[in-house]
Amino acid sequence: MTPFTFARAGDTAEALRQGERAGTKYLGGGTNLVDLMREQIEAPTALVDVTGLSSGIEETGGGGLLIGAATRNTAVAEHRLIRTRYPLLARAILAGASGQIRNMATVAGNMLQRTRCAYFYDEAARCNKRAPGVGCDAIDGFNRMHAILGASPACVATHPSDMCVALAAIGATVHLQGAGGARTLPFTDLHRLPEGRPDIETLLEPGELITGVELPALPFAVRSTYRKVRDRSSYAFALVSVAAAVDLAEDGTVREARLALGGVAHKPWRAFRAEAALIGAQPSENAFRAAAEAALEGAAPLADNAFKIELAKRTITAVLAELTGVSA
């Protein structure tokens, strides 16, 4: 590990002052950053611990919630209002990592965790994320875990977070603070697709701090869930995951739906087209399968991961059936 200085930020202003300096990184729980520093993939010269900054969950007017950036993943999942109003978020968090890691991980750190692509971790491999322009060994390598949507010739890595898939479905808003002041971003815009610059993963400015994430009121999310398909039943990253919420009208048709996928793209993937396809539909396996087809339209498999396309379609169909009581 490259030597670095360590300081705890007492407040946001102090964090920003320190975060402005080149070579500085903010530290949440450290569960991703410390690992990447040990692997020499990240080499900051200064760490600013921001876990002492906002870590509460507050109600916003109108039925939403504001979650502080430093709130631990466990604290979010166990919060009564998250469990009852946004079960898909509680379930997504609980589907990730392990009890120990969820106790350490912060909300902001979870959002900014980096890909688990084995070539990104392997110093001997070419990776455009680590060294822009050198090439990507995953594209012709072992790419069973890699992206089927939104990838580019430069990068086929996936975003590994479970929590983020639920935040995308919920339509959360990220609160940021930087040298230029405070701003917000729709959560679905926070992460980028790789295009020619997979090393640039988000729209954050250098030194910008995530201060929180806001969940809009979404009353129909009481009918929501998260399903994760993986190689072993726990403590493994997703092959494919689905976060969904469905609002049914009096006549039983779909009034509105939210759908997002994990394990399939460089960013948490909100399936807007599939959501649109569901509106007005009478819940049925056929309608859900049609929405799943819409969600995966344009999916492009690599040598080892074509199975993800059908797996994602079946998982979407099964989750929507579960939420609406249709037998599938």
Binding site: L27, G30, T31, V34, D49, T51, G99, Q100, N103, M104
Partner: peptide
């Protein structure tokens, strides 16, 4: 490497002692 910090289980390998 699991230990308890203020009663919560965490991984000591991914924790910097200064944290």
């Amino acid at each position: 490497c699991t230990v308890l910090v203020d009663g919560e289980r965490i991984l000591s390998c991914l924790t910097l002692a200064v944290q």
